[in-house]
Amino acid sequence: MEDKKHHISSFNSLLMVLIGLFIMTGISVMITEIHFSTFSVGVALLLASIKGYLVLTYFMHLKYDEPIFRIMVFLILLLFAIVIGITFIDYLLR
């Protein structure tokens, strides 16, 4: 019964995610040479979000977990997004 609940990821899939994260990190560094003006923070956050998504989904097994945990993580990310959003809206409205 317990075994059915625990998904065991294959080595290859974890390796692919790891390589994906390395590539994204490389892009994060290289992209600093390009000037996106007011969007520079947004681009950095986008890349960080993709990396965070990969870690949460595969390394932390969220993809294979109960929906309640996905909902809780979503709510927390939503909270974080609102907090960051309010902060940057303040910058835009000044």
Partner: peptide, 21 residues
């Protein structure tokens, strides 16, 4: 309580709408 932090910053020069909010 999560969304009221700006009331420590009314005199810092944050935007009018932020202060209102």
């Amino acid at each position: 309580g999560y969304f009221v932090w700006g009331h420590h910053m009314f005199t810092t020069g944050i935007s009018y709408w932020s202060r209102w909010f």
